[in-house]
Design a protein around this nucleic acid. Structure first.
Ligand SMILES: [Zn+2]
Ligand SMILES: [Zn+2]
Ligand SMILES: [Zn+2]
Ligand SMILES: [Zn+2]
Lengths: 144, 144
DNA sequence: TTACAACCTACAGTCGTTGTAGCTTCAAGA
DNA sequence: TCTTGAAGCTACAACGACTGTAGGTTGTAA
């Protein structure tokens, strides 16, 4: 006898909201499950596993599109995993670039905050620093 | 004679799109400028400076709401800068927490990628790791 | 005058959810 | 069996910070 899960149980185990699961179905990331006589979704273990994969990948920062790609690639287990690995490596590079950007932001923010003496707005070093990038250490702040 | 800037010049200097400036006006972040006889926006130095402040603050990661708050506080130069400093310190904490999250993601991603031997999908360590959080080093991946 | 870049408004789309309104269905206790 | 309340259903709007598009108007320089 197959395991059956309600959408609420799926949400609890997948650590997400019920709406999120319905959204995944809507965009074709989760297949449409069977329905009860009263039109309620009934999931099985395969759905459960797929949701687990999606949620864990999201926690590691992959976009839903990338996840969709990876899931499509896993359809043929005998296929080379080269593309999957490429996606993961590209994602790692993106994560590292975001870290660099945030570290540079942190440096500037710390400097601003340290210089402020907590006096009047007119003398605030934070406001001054926000007004004028010349006062920054970094040459410029790269976009995203 | 006052300096006059077209919206295109503002965008070039502010390093953003023309639409972004119209959007800032729409949400009340930039005041409505004067218009030419043909209804085109005409900015002055004050607008220019305000846009510079906004864009630099955005580059340092502040949300538009926080920027709006800070700009409101600078209206009275004799007022204490305590609130501004608090906003900046809170923002620094957020940046640091995002860095931690990304560093943990980087660690797991590196591990996954290193373990993959580049063979078939069935044996791919990346797919395996994405399927099963048990294989992660971190106990769990905290949300945003 | 003509050509073209730059401007105008209004609105839709992005990403990944989350919230709401107004229903219906399910499960457990009385 | 009836009742209650939690959980489910659809459909749609909102979030943040833009970005893109359509279809028209204005400004400017050759
Ligand atoms: Zn200060
Ligand atoms: Zn700067
Ligand atoms: Zn692999
Ligand atoms: Zn994990």
């Amino acid at each position: 006898m197959a395991e059956r899960y309600s959408i609420g149980q799926m949400a609890r185990i997948g650590n997400c909201k019920v709406q999120t699961i319905r959204y995944y179905e809507q965009i074709g990331l989760l297949p449409e499950p069977e329905r009860s006589a009263g039109n309620q979704r009934i999931y099985n273990r395969a759905h459960m596993n797929r949701l687990g994969f999606i949620r864990h990948s999201r926690e590691l920062g992959f976009s839903l599109d990338r996840i969709k790609e990876i899931l499509a690639l896993t359809d043929d287990p005998s296929h080379s995993c080269e593309t999957v690995d490429q996606i993961a490596r590209r994602h790692l590079l993106e994560v590292e670039s975001r870290i660099k950007r945030l570290q540079s932001m942190r440096k500037e923010l710390k400097r601003m905050i340290d210089r402020c003496s907590g006096n009047k707005v007119a003398d605030c070093r934070i406001i001054e620093a926000l007004s004028n990038h010349q006062l920054c250490l970094s040459e410029r702040h790269p976009p995203e």
